[in-house]
Amino acid sequence: MTALNVRKYAPKKYLAENGALAGLLVLAVAIAIMQPAFLSAQNLLNVGVQAAVIAIMAFGMTFVVVAGGIDLSVGSIAALAAMVGALTAGPVGLVVGALCGLVNGALISYGKLPPFIATLAMLSVARGLTLVFSGGQPHETDELVSFLGSNLAPSLPLPLLLMLAFFGVTGLVLTRTNLGRRMYAIGGNEEAAKLSGIDVRKQKLWIYALSGLFAAAAGLVLAGRLGSAGPQAAVGYELDAIAAVVIGGASLSGGVGRATGTLVGALVLAVLRNGLNLLQVPPFWQQVVIGAVIALAALLDSLRRR
């Protein structure tokens, strides 16, 4: 055993992420060989834009997963926030999203519900409210929200920039704030966190509120891109967000996960979808391939940890 010496975080940190990153590179090279059009600037920008919505949602999910929870309601919250945003104004949508997250947090912290159940309930409630408010019809988004989905310059799509901004914020929150440190502590050992004076219940409120806020932002970006908020928007996105987090190397039992991992995870999903489209794989088969890739990524990760 070595004596105590302080070394700065070593390249090991990178190695730990290499699994997902290496997978992403292999995937991209394989697709590029089969279909060189994949590498065109326009297409790569498309991939980024396609990744943006899931990535932003998945960043919020990363907080929850690191803290040992799960949030099944992000897809529905995204749709509700977009719909409220279209009917009133974008910022109102964000507030509604954060509020939905707060309700999740309160049910989990003070109602002592398992996160799976609390957010499953919210999945249904938020989707239902979306349908109620929309009357079953899509609604056009206002200028502000549409702007979120637009291009700042011909090759500078705003969703891509927003994704990077949220990535930066997520990394900062996880590594540089007390809230972030507490997420790792709570997910790693909730009892130890409690006995160290961390107000676990209060922290969980914030964590789920953040997830709700991020989901709402993702919903607004999605609506901005499409120019309208639909009652059935973002159905099933929560599963993609969870997949991105897991592909990125986070552990669903909590305490482990990184912003870079989640970004790579979201990109893997987007590259895969884009590549399968370029290769003209029928949509039904695409689902099969994506599922297989998720399983493969999780398998590799579990092998690497042994």
Partner: peptide, 21 residues
């Protein structure tokens, strides 16, 4: 292990747990 430590974290992260503020 059950109540004192966050086993997924490092020595330093465990040491600072009660003094994050």
């Amino acid at each position: 292990k059950g109540q004192g430590l966050v086993l997924t974290a490092t020595v330093g992260q465990n040491l600072e747990l009660a003094t994050l503020e």
